[in-house]
């Protein structure tokens, strides 16, 4: 197990370097529109002398591979650079936004687990019933609805049409950056963010549960005299859960990294929205820093998910001598 984890961690290194390289190439002047140096200067006129001075300070006059060297070495020291726009370190900007993203991600994952799992189990146990049809149909719709559009529809419904009941609370975009968003503000973004994944969780759960319920060991459990509930929730569920846990785990990684669409639609002051705003303003250090953090989180969470397999499924014992 230890060997397996070490190998996986070593495998992360090339992946991580690859990501930084791609990000770095994208930043080469002329490849994408917009002039970052103009952004740094802001309203002031950009004289060639000033430009040279800024290039000097940011090592922009050096050859690309030297710049990349500077970048990676800073990165390894935990320095993500400084925002062109805000004259603040990227680390502190992202650290500000991160708790909000986590709050949203955790809420969305809870929705995913509770609603997705239950819907999947009900629909498998009561196959072809009204509830099964309802779940199958609504999950088909949910996976095809774009998240940002669903978000806007929800805002319109709860924030505008039903304003007298909700007081608009479920809609209000958060204006005061830094103030902790309250639960009411969390509901709609969380539901929106969770929508597609919840539908997937329900579908995976349904198919896995149906498969598990058709296995011989279920008949064995029935023949022992167990109640149907014990058979479903103990014998079938533990087997069916394995792929579902994987999906939720990987999804958690993606959500932790910030959901760009949902955060933008709801003006949720998280990492995703910060990346989105930085892209619009060609604030490359923030974009790169944000993406690097997201990639790191996704990689670490994926590793944790793989390790958790071994806990759920005794047949998997990584790296050890097989029986």
């Amino acid at each position: 197990m230890f060997k397996y984890v070490m190998r996986r961690i070593l495998q992360m290194i090339p992946v991580f370097l690859g990501v930084t390289l791609i990000l770095f190439v994208l930043r080469i002047p002329g490849l994408l529109p917009g002039d970052p140096i103009q952004l740094i200067v802001g309203e002031k006129t950009l004289t060639p002398a000033l430009r040279a001075q800024i290039e000097e300070k940011n090592h922009l006059n050096e050859p690309a591979y030297v710049q990349y060297g500077y970048y990676v070495s800073n990165l390894l020291q935990g320095d993500l650079g400084e925002s062109y726009q805000k004259s603040r370190s990227v680390t502190s900007i992202l650290a500000d936004k991160f708790p909000n993203t986590i709050r949203l991600a955790v809420a969305a994952i809870l929705v995913e687990i509770v609603v997705g799992l239950l819907a999947g189990i009900i629909s498998a146990v009561k196959q072809y019933s009204f509830w099964d049809v309802l779940v199958t149909l609504s999950t088909s719709i949910l996976v095809s609805v774009p998240v940002f559009w669903l978000g806007m529809l929800l805002q319109m419904l709860f924030g505008i049409k039903l304003k007298q009941w909700t007081g608009g609370a479920l809609f209000l975009p958060i204006t005061g950056m830094g103030t902790p968003p309250d639960i009411a503000h969390l509901i709609l973004p969380a539901v929106t963010l969770a929508s597609v994944s919840t539908a997937y969780v329900a579908r995976i759960m349904r198919s896995q549960m149906l498969e598990a319920l058709g296995q011989d060991y279920i008949r064995t459990a029935m023949a022992k005299g167990l109640t149907e509930r014990a058979v479903v929730f103990k014998h079938a569920l533990k087997n069916a859960m394995i792929p579902v846990v994987t999906f939720i785990g990987i999804d958690l990684g993606a959500l932790m990294g910030g959901a760009i669409l949902t955060e933008s639609v709801f003006s949720w002051p998280g990492v995703g929205r910060e990346i989105y705003l930085a892209v619009l303003q060609r604030d490359w250090p923030v974009v790169m820093g944000g993406v690097v953090i997201v990639v790191l989180i996704v990689m670490v969470v994926n590793l944790l998910v793989d390790i958790s397999y071994a806990l759920l499924d005794p047949r998997i014992r990584y790296g050890g001598a097989a029986e």
Partner: peptide
């Protein structure tokens, strides 16, 4: 019937590879 199954009449099946639950 549940009280009977496994207590008064028990059953074993053809394929022992699949008749035991792999995760318990």
């Amino acid at each position: 019937v549940r009280a009977m199954r496994g207590d008064r009449i028990a059953m074993i099946f053809q394929d022992p590879m699949t008749s035991l639950n792999p995760v318990f």
